[in-house]
Write a protein that binds this DNA or RNA. Sequence first.
DNA 1: TATTGTTATACTCTATAACTATA
DNA 2: TATAGTTATAGAGTATAACAATA
Lengths: 164, 164
Amino acid sequence: MAENVLYDELMRQLSADGSVRRELGRIVPGGCSDGSASVLAVLGRHGAMRIGRLTELLGVDPSVTSRHVAHLTMLGWIDRNPDPADRRSRILRLTSDGHTQLAELSDHRSRELAARLTDWSNEEIRRLAQLLSRLRADFDAQRTEPRTFADASEDARHPRAPAA
Amino acid sequence: MAENVLYDELMRQLSADGSVRRELGRIVPGGCSDGSASVLAVLGRHGAMRIGRLTELLGVDPSVTSRHVAHLTMLGWIDRNPDPADRRSRILRLTSDGHTQLAELSDHRSRELAARLTDWSNEEIRRLAQLLSRLRADFDAQRTEPRTFADASEDARHPRAPAA
DNA sequence: TATTGTTATACTCTATAACTATA
DNA sequence: TATAGTTATAGAGTATAACAATA
C-alpha cells in the first residue's frame, strides 16, 4: 500500500493534536467545563431537543450527556421541561442565561483562536474547518454503521479513491 | 470583526472533533493506552531523549510524562539508562519490544484510518495533515511565549491577516 | 539556590452496568 | 417486553503541589 505513509502522517498529526485540544480546553472561561461547552454549543446551533438527540449529536454515551445536562441545569443555563409526547423524556432548552453564556464563550474562543492564527488566510481557515467537518462525518458514519469483514476486504480490493 | 464567523466555525469543528478523537482512542489495540501510544510515537520519531525533552514535545505537564514513562518501562517497551552528563536525568529509549509495538500500532491505526477515508484523495489527506501541523505549531508557539495584554491589543488594531 | 524528575492528590471526561419510569 | 434516561462505579488523562536528588 503505497499511500500508507500518508495515513501515517495524518495519524501522527491527529494524535499530536492533543496539545491543541488541551489548549482549547484551557481556553474555556471559568465556570464552564469543556463538556458543558459542547452541550451549550449544540443546543445553540440546533435548538431545543431531547437527551437522546443530543447524545447522538455529541457522539458519546447517554450517561455522559445526562451528567453534563444535569450540571448545566444546576447552573441554570438550560431547563428541562416534560415532553408532552413522551413522558419518559424532557425537552432541553437554553435559558436566557444559557444564551448569554454561550455568546460569551463563543466570543472568547474566537478571540483566542484569532490570536493564534494571525498569519492564516481566511481561505486556509475555511479549508481546515471543511476538512475537519468531513473527517468527522466519515468517522461518524463508520461508528453508526459498523462494517463487516466482507465490507472491509471488498473495499481493500476496490478502493473508492485509488492512488492519485 | 467580519471574519469572526470563520473562527467560530473552525472552533466548532475543532470542538466537535471530540468524536474523532474518542474514536481514535478506541482504535488503539489492547495493552496500549492512548497516552502511552503518544510517548512511543515521539520516541520512535525523534529517537532517544530525556524526560524533559519528551515533556516539551508532548506539550504536557512533566508529571504526566513521568507517569506514562513509568508505565511503558514496566511493560518493557522503553528503558531508562542513567545520563552520564547529568545524574538527575535518564535517557529514554525504545526497547526491541517497544519498536515492535510501535510498528504494530502504526500499522493498525493506518489501516483503521484508511477504512474511514476511502473516498479521500491523497491530496486531501496531505492537505489536512499539513494544516493540522501548522495549527499545532501556532498553538505551541503561543503556549511557550505567553502574550502580554499590550501584544493582544496591538494585534487587534493591526491584524497580520486582514480580511481576504 | 536552581533544576530534573517523581509522587500524592484531585478533577474532568468517558464507558459499562444496574436501575427507574414510561411506552 | 422495549425504550428513555439516570445513577453508581471505574478507568484514563491531566494539572497542581509537595518532595527528592543532583547541579
